[in-house]
Design a protein around this nucleic acid. Structure first.
Lengths: 270, 270
DNA sequence: CTCAATTTGTTCGTATGTATG
DNA sequence: ACATACATACGAACAAATTGA
């Protein structure tokens, strides 16, 4: 009897890819350090419960990626870490969010006025009269790392459509003297790339992405900015100071806070 | 010429699985609502650039999952959403974190005293004299959803090893009258399941997981609790109020705050 | 009721990829 | 490296059910 049934039960992804993923992770995480000799083929066969050739296929992949080098008679050695792509520190407060995207390099993919309204979760304010839908790709050192689907209050968009067409929307909104932002929420989850997103991010269809649903609400309770952002799965980390409120009390770091409302009076609880 | 070269460039995952992923997402997200007739085979072939049989394989998968029903001559219809597994609201502050795991159902997998110390990122305090390493699986309605690798200050562990063996550690720590927690950090990223984690979570090798690195530091600056948690990729969301500091100022929701330090004086900046 | 159009279901042949021993 | 078995993917043709004219 073959081992198909026992192994293919959970994931239909080719075995040698699964094995390669795990080995790659071990190198990335430092479990196998650079210069180390990794387990022998025999050990790996046993650990993963696969045939020798399958392990070799996995190793061939890693070799092509420059992560390991195999030498006949000696063993297989780690020849380099994959460079850590997690350069992006996802923001967890409004100020650093605006700051981080201020100088983003982006390419507008499409702009559509009078678009279908965005989906709002309960407690995310009410819809504006009309929305402009902007789609863009963000780049870092020439590589795409996120796709943004943005529903922008059309009234806002029309006030400076050139600027909104050219660069990131949020900093521009903050700059507007008369804008008062009362709430800003972020919902984070793991999703999969649809054909267009996969194409823009240059990844495979259905590969996981980090999806961020971002809503900004003004003093009328209107969702003026609703963005769905798809990040490459390994370009970021999200840091969270679980005692931030205490820290805030301590330091009170002022940034771009001047023009934002101090009021939270319109708060609505679900 | 076949389309192998053009399509297999980016992801070596079988095509029909990629297609199925995207279609599943469209149903989950409501892009295709329950009862709707989805695109015809012909349309799907064109959109994805694959052969008819490949689309059919994807549809067969979704049919086995109960998401669609196909009728000869009529079309293929959405017969149900996959129930939303995202029941878990990952905490972004200490109080709700402790609260959320207080009644966790867990199974200890292994406990090891005098274990190798954990890896600390800079700014995460200094190491304790010794650590106990606890491995556990968390369950929700009979299904595993996360694996926890916990390094616990051994001094702490020995004060009530039975309790720490039996249930979640963090609530117990908070309950200790003399413990003073000055910092708690969370670092969030997307990783892949190693063989053991895959086995415990009942997923495929190398499938993506949401990885959370959690560090709790006491008033001596010692990292007394260092956990690496692997969550199923689709069991959670992470909500973030980007203007939380304002909100905190407004409402000042007190919870289990009494016993924690008000001091943040030992703060170290990177 | 029949006809044609639409749409899913089935089959064949061929080529390549995956996995075992 | 080889022989074997099974999985994936293509293209194309044909069968069967549904719908509406």
């Amino acid at each position: 009897m073959t081992k198909y049934s026992t192994i293919y039960g959970r994931s239909r992804v080719p075995l040698y890819l699964q094995v390669a993923s795990v080995m790659r992770e071990r190198i990335t995480s430092g479990h196998w350090a650079e210069g180390d000799r990794i387990s022998t083929l025999e050990e790996l066969e046993k650990e993963f419960g696969v045939a020798r050739v399958t392990v070799r296929q996995a190793i061939d992949l890693l070799r092509a990626e420059g992560l390991v080098q195999a030498q006949q008679g000696r063993g297989t050695f780690v020849s380099g870490k994959p460079m850590d792509h997690r350069w992006l520190n996802l923001a967890t407060d409004f100020d650093s969010l605006v700051d981080s995207i201020r100088n983003n390099v982006l390419k507008r993919v499409s702009i559509q006025r009078d678009a279908a309204p965005p989906c709002l979760a309960p407690g995310e304010g009410r819809l504006a009269a009309a929305y402009t839908f902007l789609k863009s790709v963000q780049f870092n050192s020439g590589r795409p790392f996120s796709v943004v689907h943005l529903h922008l209050d059309q009234q806002l968009f029309l006030r400076d459509h050139k600027r909104f067409t050219r660069s990131a929307a949020l900093p521009k909104i903050v700059e507007m003297e008369d804008m008062v932002i009362t709430h800003a929420y972020q919902i984070f989850s793991i999703g999969v790339a649809d054909p267009e997103t996969a194409d823009l991010l240059e990844i495979g269809l259905g590969e996981p992405t980090a999806d961020c649903h971002l809503t900004v609400i003004d003093d009328r309770g209107v969702a003026i900015y609703v963005a769905d952002i798809h990040y490459l799965k390994d370009c970021f980390v999200l840091r969270n100071d679980l005692l931030a409120r205490h820290a805030a009390r301590r330091s009170g770091t002022a940034l771009t806070r001047k023009r934002r409302a101090t009021a939270g009076d319109l708060a609505v609880e679900a």
